[in-house]
Design a protein around this nucleic acid. Sequence first.
DNA 1: GTCGATGTTATCAA
DNA 2: TTTGATAACATCGA
Length: 274
Amino acid sequence: MPELPEVETVRAILAESIVGRRVAQVVAHREDQIRPDRAAFVAGLTGRVLVAARRFGKHLLLDLDDAQTLVVHLRMTGQLRVGDAAEPALPHTHLEFLFDDGGALRWRDVRRFGWLHLTGTNEAMTLPSLAACGPDALAADEATFVARLRGLRRQMKPLLLAQEVICGLGNIYADEVLHRARIHPRQRSDRVSRRQWRGLYAITQEILRAAIALRGTSTDGEYVAPDGFRGDYQRQLAVYGREGQPAPCCGGPVRREVIGSRSAHYCPCCQKLR
DNA sequence: GTCGATGTTATCAA
DNA sequence: TTTGATAACATCGA
């Protein structure tokens, strides 16, 4: 599922492949995922050139040549695919941007939780979904990161998933980060030491960068990049999705339990509750 | 054919 | 303040 490293991979590929190209036609097969509405969306994008691709947390921001920005959230199964307009669209393709050079950018989303919002570039960060976000997990420096997380008293796993505190982490990387930091997912955050916070910051940076280098994680073939390739980080996962299998830290079995109504994976012998 | 699980987020309830 | 339940949706596997 797309979390920060996957969205960053999408951003990088789009920056290479579609910046500079002009949208000749927008075909909206359905309108429930586009905002503010179909008419404004289609009219606002037709004829425009993409000039930049940015990312904030799990949000993608595609800047156009007229001070408009297309903000995209992939949620669970949203995908942007770059290809040839002559190729048949894959199933669950709900939106197509046809370029004037015969290429196409297509939006597909099996579960249809994702959304695309066309707004002014200056207003993009004021969209509720973005305005509510804390600092980006990758862009934040150590002082900012620690300051945002300290002072609350929540279970560590749900805390790392809270986008309003720090944005970008999802279920996979939250589990991986806590495992590497040897912190139990139910550990109350007010019992975490200053030293542990600093360690958590360093580990978060390492894991996010390593995942980006491998172009993200593709479990169950869910996440696919705009070029059709899957990520490779799933091979590096220590605990996520590995219930019952030996953890790399000690060889003991990975445990899975529901915490904050989300599945959490951890090593019970190396991630002790204090 | 039914049921539960999947993971992200908003919203409402406790 | 924190936690949990629910809903949005489609697919897959038991």
